[in-house]
Design a protein around this nucleic acid. Structure first.
Length: 132
DNA sequence: TGGTTGACGTTAA
DNA sequence: GTTAACGCCAACC
């Protein structure tokens, strides 16, 4: 387990630390990610969703990964409850340091934790899907 | 234009 | 129940 290095085996040609400070965070919302933020803002307090759900709700081409990348550039202080976005199964996929903060924020909203995971079955929220 | 990265998801061991 | 590896696909350099 290597919690700090997100090395995808599929592209692990460079075992270096893939900690890029660039990516979306540098430029902020430049693409249609703003749509993601807007959707995340709709998440009620005490509710959580997964990246996959966001991707599905917005029909993001890249799937959950695109949603995650979008959240990576989440403008803190813009009212985007990024902490309400979790990985599949209600797991905190981000760094432990940040995950701790995320967990604290969630608990502050009344979200129950099951060990390392969030009680997704209880606090899981479904996006208001449009017609179809 | 091409190559690499990556707040993920799923399946396998 | 857990951890490890692979695959997808879009954005960034």
């Amino acid at each position: 387990m290597m919690p700090y290095v997100y090395g995808d085996s599929g592209s692990a040609k460079n075992p270096r630390q893939r900690r890029r400070k660039s990516d979306a965070a540098a430029h902020g919302a430049k693409s249609g990610w703003e749509r993601v933020y807007k959707l995340v803002k709709k998440i009620p307090r005490g509710r959580v969703v997964t990246y996959g759900e966001i991707a599905r709700a917005l029909k993001l081409p890249g799937g959950a990964r695109t949603a995650g990348r979008a959240m990576a550039g989440c403008p803190a202080g813009q009212g985007v409850p990024w902490h309400r976005v979790l990985g599949a199964g209600g797991r905190l996929l981000i760094r432990q340091q940040v995950a701790a903060l995320q967990r604290r924020l969630l608990e502050s909203e009344g979200v129950s934790f099951h060990g390392r995971r969030v009680d997704f079955a209880k606090h899981g929220w479904k996006f208001p899907r449009g017609p179809r």
